[in-house]
Structures are given as structure tokens and as C-alpha cells.
Design a binder for these strands. Structure first.
Lengths: 337, 337
DNA sequence: TTGAAAGCGCTAACAT
DNA sequence: ATGTTAGCGCTTTCAA
């Protein structure tokens, strides 16, 4: 066998032989230092150091059944929204001594399922951000290994979600206070759970405030999706004094397309997004949007996975994170007809 | 031992027993399907499917010495520049059947070193993007395992870098053609190899075109770093008709600070960045910047790691990726004195 | 084509 | 406190 050929590493045996002790003593020196004589331990560690020895995680995983690895799956790495989740997850993982595996599902449910299957046996748990998979698939995935959802809920699974009830209410209140009597929701992917929650919340809030709500879409949650959405919104006519977009990427596309068509924002139409990505504050007009705590969501999700490694949850919890409307220049008074 | 308790997975033995064959046959059905009778194989695969069996990668890694895992370390996940590298690396890894481990070094060399040590035995190779580590540390890291650098070079190591010689020449030509007689470089982290290359290139190109070049910094390669840099640039006075920034994040900070101070861009001063991140085209004024092929860099780096798993390179190569100046609204004619 | 058995590097009973 | 030893789940000779 040509295992790694040129890349050879010393094993616990080499250290044991060189240090004149048993392999178990070497092992203990690393994993249970208190159960080994101070002198012996120091000697062993010294020899290990000199030989450049480090424990082989695969062997450890095989024995203990734990890989100290968590996988995070996101629909699109380059969407800055997910960068926040990734950052939070990475930090939490690192500080817990876990290794973070990253997968980009490319908004593609079957790719997501494939990754779940492939990574499953290799990791101690999953964090699925904005999963596009049906509930049944998620439950199945969670059978052998802990799964925590971010901005998605499914029966029997833990999740960390943004408070869209409050968030959508904030948006509608904002629009109502500016004199809007109706708005159009430019929807994202049909499979998006958070998209459904956003629309449901907007609708309910609209009803409470007497605003007429309409939905167009689905569109891709990207800039190019927004270009198409803007045209549809313009065609929708008079109702569309305010456009609430599935997310900021889409909203940015809308803004661009409206500008290209000579529609003024916010004078002719107000635009509101979801996520508050980095770019939203910098474009002009700057984008009014609902900020979510992405890093905290990522962090909490990883922490929750860790908790469930130890013990399967009796009844799964939904952790709700507050949202905050950031009012900027893309929203203004309703135009007088 | 309480291995995984509630989270049990079927093993190769379960499948073997259930299918009435030896474990080696099950193993072969997965790894060398052609060496097993078609009928047997199909039966085994069916049973495996029914039992929900998937090979345990840790056990596989232990036997073969290969974890089928590549680690990617970046200084800051949330910097959109690195999102491109991550995306490219993730795709390449996935399509090669590799698992991608992600680490955020937070621009911190000692954290980077720590991750290198911790992950080292667990992965088949490293991609280090914009590493801040000294050459010696990199060479040491590359002893037991393949290491490929992105936008960084070190003796004896493979790397994928952007063509900064051409890129800086393009920038200087652009400025010279607009009548600028001098420019100021707002530098990033002192440890940044690409920062050094950018400055060296700008300087040399400036000399060739007769432009006076000056450098300020170091500043953080972030928006807040740019705020500070802008003030320094203003204080620098008449030379500073053009500001070339370490990267786009810094440039965006510069733009914001200049706007806040009432300095007009590009009428009073031109601003140029490096990277062409997503936001740069959307802010106003839109940012003139040098575009790099980040996804391709990530992809190539992973492919190079794979190649070196098989065979250590005789003499390491530097792969140079073309750069392209994207001229936008932040650069214009030099002000008449 | 298939099976039996050794062993990858490590941990954890158990023994001393 | 330390050593001996039996696996963890899998792949891979070697035999049949």
C-alpha cells in the first residue's frame, strides 16, 4: 500500500518506543494528562514534540465515534447574508475545538440532499441554513445525527429563526405611517421557508393596518432576479407604491432596474428589503431593510448542535432572534395619486 | 464506552450479515464495483440502501491514510473578496469528492498558525488564501502535507496569484492618461504579501510613466481602515490627486470619509481599489478597481492540492491569473491646480 | 468472484 | 501510575 508515501507522520507507536513507555501512556498524556505521572508526561510530550507527532483524528474518530466536526450547508456562499452565518458558525466551532465543514448547495435541493448523505457519516452534526428540503427529508437526515436549522423550521427539529412576525410588522407600520395604502411583495424561491414566513407576516400585518398586500414571483434571490421582479412590479401598476423584496440582493436588482427605467426611489415608489447586507447601506439610495442577527444565528446553531451531540432533545426548541428595521433612503412618503 | 448512544449507524458488518456475504464483498461493492459479481453487488447495494448504510470516512481514512478533506484558511470570511475564493474552492472540492474545511484566521497570524497545526493531521492538504505567516512557517507547514497559496508566494511552495505587474501597470496608465502626475498608495497590513506586490508594482509602473508614488499606512483592509486612511490622504495634500487603495473595502471607507468631508470624487481626487468586490459597482460613485479572478484562484488551488497529494512537486509553480482594470466613476481627470 | 484475516492509529477496559 | 490488549469500521492482501 502506498499510504501517503512522501507524506509520512509519526504514530503513537513511534513516540511510545522512543520514549520507552506503552502506547496507552502516550495516549493518556494527550487526552487525560492528569492520569499520568508529571515526569512521564513531560517526557512523552517532549519526545512527541521532537518527532513532530500529532494524534491522528481519523483514528480518534474511529474509536470514539466522534469526529469533532460540524457541517454547515448554505444555499449560496457569495450572498453576504450567509457570510454572517458562516462567520458566526466558524467562530463558535473554532472556540469549541470543532472543525467546520462548509457546503454550498447552490439553491439546489437535490445537491443539498446529496451533501447531507455524503457528509452525514463524517460529521457530528449539521447546521442547515435556509434549507430548501422538504420536512420529511430533514427529519430523515436528523435520524442518525443532530441537525439544527437556521431560518427554517421543521417538526421535531431544533432551529434558530429571525423574528419575522415582529419584523414584518415593523415594515408594514413603517409603510403605513408613510401613507402607503398597499404594497407588493416580490417573492423569492418557492421552497424558501423564510420567504413564506415573510409573506405570511406581511400579509397579516397588512390586514391589521388596512394595507392591501399582493405577491409577485417567485424570483431568484439575486440581483438578476431583482431586475426581472422590477419589471413585473412596474407592470403591476398603481398598487405598487411600495415594493417589499424577498431579500436585499433582489432589492438591489430592483433598485438598479428602476433607476434604469427612470422610476424614482423613493419619490415614485418605496423599496424595502430583508437581511441588511453590507452593500445595502452603501448604495444609493441606501436601502431600507430588516436587519437580522446572522452571526448570532450561526453561533447559536453550532452551540445547539454541540448540546445535542450529548443528548437528543426531548422536545425541540425554536430560538427566535430579534429583528430590526433599518430605515434608510429607499422608502418615503407614498406618492400622491 | 458510550459511543454516540442514541445516534447509531449501521456498519459494514450489519450489511454483510443482512446480505449474507463477507464484509470484504460489501467493501468492494462500494470501492471496486467491477470486482464483484453484478448480481451480488446489486443485492449488497440494495441492502445497504435499505439499512441506510454509508461508509464511515474515519475508518476509511484510517486505512488509506487519506481523509479526502482539504482545508481553506482565509483572513476574513465576510470580506466578499474571499467569498469568491471560497466559492471556487468549494465547487472544485465538491466535484472532486472532497470535503472542504473552512477556517477564518481573523487577519491573525498566530491564529492561522494554530489552525494549521490543529487541522494538519486531519486534512489531505491546505489552501492558504492571503496568508500572513512568514515564509519559514509556511515551509514548515508544507512538510507533512501539501500546501497551496493564493495571492502569496513562498520559496518551495505552489501558488496561485493575480498578475499584479500587469494590473498595477494598468492602474498607473489609467491615471497617467487622466493627467495625474502623482498618486498615493493607501497600504494594507504589513504582513500582506499581495499588498507588498501591489505597492512594488505601482511604484515601478509609476517610475516608468514618470508618476510620483507615495505610500501611507499600514491600515486595516476594512471600511474602518479606509476612514482613517482618507484623513491621512487629505492631510498629505497636493500630491494626493489620486488614491490607490490596498483593497476595495478600504477604498469604500475612503469614499465614505471623503464624502463626509466634502471632498468630491473624482473631481477633487480619484480613487482606485483592488479586488472588484460586488459592492464596488453599486456604490456611488462606482469604484474603479482591479478585478481578480477569485473563483478561478480558489478552484485552481484546490486542484493543485489534489495533484500534489499524488506526487510532491519537483519544482513548485506559480500560476498567474490575469487581472483587469474596471474603469468606473471614481477616477477622472486630475484637477487643474 | 468471494471469504478470512490482518492491521490502519488510537482509546479504554482491565490488569498489574 | 503504567502496561497489555481488544477492538472501532474499513480496506486489502492472500487463499480458496
Amino acid at each position: 500500500m502506498s499510504r501517503r508515501e512522501r507524506w509520512v507522520r509519526p504514530t503513537i507507536k513511534d513516540v511510545a518506543r522512543e520514549a520507552g513507555v506503552a502506547t496507552s501512556t502516550v495516549s493518556r498524556s494527550f487526552t487525560r494528562p492528569e492520569r499520568v505521572n508529571k515526569g512521564t508526561r513531560e517526557h512523552v510530550l517532549l519526545v512527541a514534540e521532537r518527532l513532530g507527532y500529532a494524534p491522528n483524528p481519523a483514528a480518534r474518530a474511529l474509536e470514539t465515534g466522534r469526529s469533532h466536526t460540524v457541517a454547515l450547508l448554505v444555499p449560496d456562499i457569495t450572498n453576504p447574508y450567509f457570510s454572517g452565518v458562516i462567520k458566526g458558525a466558524e467562530r463558535a466551532a473554532h472556540s469549541a475545538g470543532l472543525t467546520l465543514v462548509l457546503g454550498d448547495t447552490q439553491e439546489n435541493p437535490s445537491l443539498e440532499a446529496q451533501m447531507l448523505g455524503r457528509l452525514g457519516p463524517a460529521v457530528d452534526g449539521f447546521v442547515l441554513s435556509a434549507s430548501r428540503l422538504p420536512d420529511a427529508d430533514l427529519e430523515a437526515a436528523a435520524r442518525p445525527v443532530p441537525v439544527v436549522l437556521v431560518n427554517r423550521a421543521a417538526p421535531g427539529l431544533e432551529s434558530v429563526v429571525s423574528d419575522f412576525d415582529s419584523g414584518t410588522q415593523q415594515i408594514v407600520d413603517h409603510l403605513a405611517s408613510l401613507g402607503h395604502r398597499s404594497f407588493v411583495f416580490l417573492g423569492g424561491p418557492a421552497e424558501s421557508w423564510s420567504g413564506a414566513r415573510r409573506w405570511a407576516g406581511l400579509r397579516a400585518a397588512g390586514r391589521r393596518r388596512g394595507l392591501k398586500a399582493r405577491r409577485l414571483g417567485p424570483y431568484l434571490p439575486t440581483v438578476s432576479g431583482g431586475l426581472a421582479a422590477a419589471d413585473a412590479a412596474v407592470a403591476a401598476g398603481a398598487d405598487a407604491t411600495a415594493l417589499v423584496c424577498h431579500n436585499d440582493m433582489l432589492a438591489i436588482g430592483v433598485l438598479r432596474r428602476l433607476a434604469a427605467r427612470g422610476v424614482r426611489v423613493p419619490e415614485d415608489v418605496s423599496v424595502v428589503g430583508f437581511d441588511d447586507i453590507f452593500t445595502s447601506a452603501l448604495i444609493s439610495p441606501s436601502l431600507t431593510t430588516l436587519a437580522e442577527r446572522t452571526e448570532e444565528a450561526g453561533r447559536r446553531a453550532v452551540e445547539t448542535v454541540r448540546r445535542h451531540e450529548l443528548q437528543r432533545p426531548a422536545d425541540p426548541m425554536v430560538q427566535v432572534l430579534p429583528t430590526e428595521l433599518r430605515i434608510r433612503d429607499s422608502s418615503g412618503p407614498a406618492p400622491v395619486p
